[in-house]
Design a protein around this nucleic acid. Structure first.
Lengths: 246, 246
DNA sequence: CGAAAACTTGACCCAACTCAACGAACGTGG
DNA sequence: CCACGTTCGTTGAGTTGGGTCAAGTTTTCG
């Protein structure tokens, strides 16, 4: 059971090189632990002057935006090891809301301290850059997913992404995922109706691609589901050797 | 007519504070000018080891991803003043392609030089952060646009965004935009068919929201189109005072 | 000036949405 | 620990926004 800051070091090291000295500095960061109930807002759209940056220790969270008629789009999901709002380091006003999906534990770090850290320790600054750029890469993948893939593929793709991301931080086996979201939330994440999500899950189940027990989903074969999903993990940039070079 | 590097300074200053000394350093950056024909690839998906970072001087470019069956999603549009591939500064492999939309002029800057610059001049590093974070914000807006808004709104929203972004760098009047894309490309950007794009443009025209002459579109009234589009420019973070604080 | 690309429009179709009903699971208070 | 209300999931029936196909028409450009 790593401490929150050990988790942070471990997470950054999945994509960047962090030396012993830099790691020690991170482990000494002042921080405040927080616990949120499900559906609590961490940040509200339009809110300004946030002086902290949160890092997910356990549980999940999501970002969302609303249309004028109240339809919701969940634009990203966050799992342990994710920074929430690196954005708040440099932009004053939130252009979206951040909400806890489950019971959520975070640590909050002062934005100035984090910026200072990024400047005095380039390897940490770079790791934060990598983190932000990977988030952008995920947005791009979600754009093509929602814009160009059909229902079954879309859902399957999200399942694959979740399984891979969870595995990358040591949660789950990469062959299944514990869906922590309702089907309505799932729908809001892929731009569909909850009813249609339900039908697509049924289709995937009947095709033998997944098995379901309650909200937990397991993949019959990774080969199979990743084919159906058109899933290729390159966009997650998980290969350390590939990042942060030169 | 600003030089390319003057344009870069001006662009960074639209969202961040850059002092005189930092500006002078930017103006002294070694760079190589390049000219691309329309539809030339600047970066191909999967490509690695890019050691340069491009900055758009004139013309437009876009990023795209393809599905297995060849459908295309244009995930972002880039106009003069945009950095292409800040990503390449820190990630080794491209997860998408970058292509010239029109005849395109860029300057290329060595990635090490740019990274060095970001480290030695924190205000420049911060401006680059802001730039990358705003790009992410645009991705989020496109996600809700494609995932949750109907055809007319989607198209109108893209028109509004283009007009505002162009105006922000001193191109166009914010009340119209010269569409440089074909309707098929427009469709790929909003997740629709070219046929449907055509019908939506027709609907907007018939409703008196826009007027068209060839590919140039002008807005009857900003009030009107921004309402139809559900467009609010907050996500572009154009207010300097709001960014880069503390 | 002619060929190719882009745009436009109509007819038809289907994936996904809406509406509605019901069953299952879950949380809460008595 | 059970009762019961509420949220979540499931399924059917009918509708529709946007896709497909195809045939012109206009524009662009060599």
């Amino acid at each position: 059971m790593p401490t929150p800051l050990e988790l942070m070091v471990r997470k950054l090291r999945t994509r960047s090189s962090i030396g012993e000295e830099a790691a020690a500095v991170i482990l000494g960061l002042p921080h405040v632990s927080r616990i949120y109930d499900p559906l609590t807002y961490l940040v509200r759209e339009g809110q300004g002057d946030l002086d902290r940056c949160s890092f997910v220790v356990s549980g999940q969270a999501f970002r969302q935006k609303l249309t004028n008629d109240g339809a919701r789009e969940i634009v990203s999901l966050h799992i342990p090891g994710d920074f929430l709002d690196l954005q708040q380091l440099f932009l004053r006003h939130a252009d979206h809301s951040v909400q806890a999906l489950t019971k959520l534990t975070t640590i909050d770090i002062d934005r100035r301290a984090l910026r200072e850290l990024a400047m005095t320790h380039p390897s940490i600054g770079q790791a934060m850059w990598v983190d932000a750029l990977v988030e952008a890469s995920i947005y791009r993948e979600w754009l093509i997913n929602i814009g160009r893939r059909d229902g079954v593929t879309r859902i399957a793709h999200l399942l694959c992404e979740l399984a891979v991301r969870l595995k990358a931080i040591g949660l789950g086996d990469g062959r299944s995922c514990e869906l922590v979201m309702t089907q309505e939330q799932l729908g809001d994440a892929v731009g569909m109706t909850s009813v249609h999500v339900n039908r697509m899950l049924k289709a995937l189940t009947e095709a033998g691609v997944i098995e379901r027990t309650g909200r937990s989903v397991s993949f019959g074969s990774w080969e199979r589901i990743s084919t159906v999903a058109e899933f290729s993990p390159a966009y997650l940039h998980l290969d350390l050797a590939e990042n942060n070079a030169g």
